[in-house]
Amino acid sequence: MDDERDTVLIVDDNAENRALLGEVLKPYFHVLITTRGDQAIKVCQKHLPDIVLLDIMMPEMDGYEVCRRLRADPRTQTIPVIFLTAKSQIEDEQRGFDAGAVDYILKPISPPILLARVHTHLRLNQAMSELENQNQMLEARVRERTRHLESLQNATIEAMASLAETRDNETGNHIRRTQHYMRHLAEELVRQGLYLAQLTPETIENLFRSAPLHDIGKVGIPDAILLKSDKLTEDEFEIMKKHTEIGRNVIASVESALDFESDFLKCAKEIAMSHQEKWDGSGYPQGLKEYEIPLSARLMALADVYDALISERVYKPAFSHEKAVSIIKKGSGTHFEPAIVAAFLAIEQQFKAIAQTYRDDGFHAASFPCLNSGNNDKALGR
């Protein structure tokens, strides 16, 4: 027996029909034969024939039910089923197609028609299987290519962000901490039933990926101002404020070079421009108030301030987690959106755990001047 031949399962309770079908098919196919519907299902599950020739009128379980069960089983749902029947009414044919059959052959059987139909459906099923395999290969290649592009994009983003952070005597771990703060804050708002339409899984992923670019504009601030440990003069503070617009413009220039819209860049641009805005309108650069401030920037405002408070800088020692929580709580309704502060308070231990996981080991500030009102801006992400 040629094992390379396709396998045909004949399901018929009539001995004469089985004999005729076997005589016609055996020269070309490997043939399996059963007489009952329940047997047919077991044979299909065990041997996975390439095609099934199924009688409709059988005792206990008719062909319609057999076909429905084969289609319902993931192991057998792609096996083509051809009904063999003397029923020629349109409603009978429709019922068979509704059950999942691919064709009808009327009795008495014409051997040439039988062979032609079987060969046709085997070739069609093989072509569909090959197409599915090709689609899976293409999808795998696309996923791999996408993964490579995302890895390159993420590495580029981190490199750009690290450039800005190192100029401010901060570390790459600041980037990682703020990323995770943002994600946890957004997910907590969703758990509380807030901003469900805005904070989709895709949006939260964009928040996570774009967070490192919030201070990219600091590359345009002179070191004498950026690294100054004393209180900034009024003129110096006006220059410092420009890091938000510089950051927005850098990202906008990337955006303008693309021929498609990027939700990621839109989110990054919002965060860079508006993360220093305050809920009561006293922030910068535009003095936006409440919901005028993009949600992404409102989230970053809290994440950035928390990290600034708990981190050592050349102009301040690190505050304890508890003191940082107290300061943020007091800023509810003035610096921060109350709902975001409430979400923060619900998961403040997670913030503490993130800070510990990505702590800045080995950082020692050269000096720790007292935290006066001028330095306070810096402690809060100046």
Rank of each mutant, 00 (worst) to 15 (best):
L115I: 12
G333Y: 12
Q350F: 12
Q134D: 15
V254E: 07
H243A: 05
D280W: 13
E132S: 04
A346R: 08
A186D: 04
A211P: 06
N376V: 14
I354W: 06
D92A: 02
M61Y: 14
L114N: 01
E158P: 04
A164I: 09
D55L: 09
A324D: 01
W279E: 09
D223Y: 14
E188N: 00
A308C: 14
E290P: 04
K228L: 13
E23G: 03
E234A: 08
K289C: 10
E139I: 13
I328A: 00
N125P: 00
T78E: 14
L189I: 09
S320M: 10
S253T: 12
A186V: 08
G96A: 03
H148N: 09
E261V: 08
L226W: 14
R71M: 13
F83T: 06
P338L: 10
T146K: 10
E292Y: 08
F29G: 03
V43N: 03
L196A: 02
L196M: 08
L288K: 06
L380A: 02
T78C: 06
M273V: 09
M61H: 10
L299R: 02
K241V: 14
L207M: 06
M300F: 13
P294A: 05
Q153R: 15
H148M: 11
R209Y: 11
R298V: 13
S151M: 14
I157G: 04
G381H: 13
S129C: 07
S129P: 01
S256G: 01
I33Y: 11
V8L: 13
D377R: 03
I340V: 09
I340G: 04
E144I: 02
R143F: 11
I56C: 06
R71Q: 14
T357N: 00
Q134C: 11
D3P: 05
S262H: 06
F351C: 05
F264N: 02
E187Q: 05
R95G: 07
P212A: 04
G22Q: 11
D263F: 10
D2H: 07
S229R: 13
R69A: 07
T244R: 06
E132D: 13
I105L: 15
S367G: 07
K26Y: 12
R68V: 14
S282Q: 08
E23V: 02
V314W: 12
D215M: 04
F363Q: 01
L115V: 04
S229N: 07
C370M: 15
H148E: 15
A353Q: 01
D361I: 03
A159D: 11
E130A: 05
L131Q: 12
D2W: 11
Q39Y: 10
E277T: 04
V325R: 04
L9V: 08
Q198A: 07
E93N: 00
A303I: 13
Q192E: 15
T334H: 07
T156F: 14
E234R: 10
P317F: 12
E202L: 11
F237Y: 13
A197N: 05
R147Q: 15
P317I: 13
A155G: 05
D98P: 04
A155N: 01
I10R: 00
I310Q: 00
L196Y: 10
E158G: 02
M160L: 15
D6K: 08
S262C: 07
F83G: 02
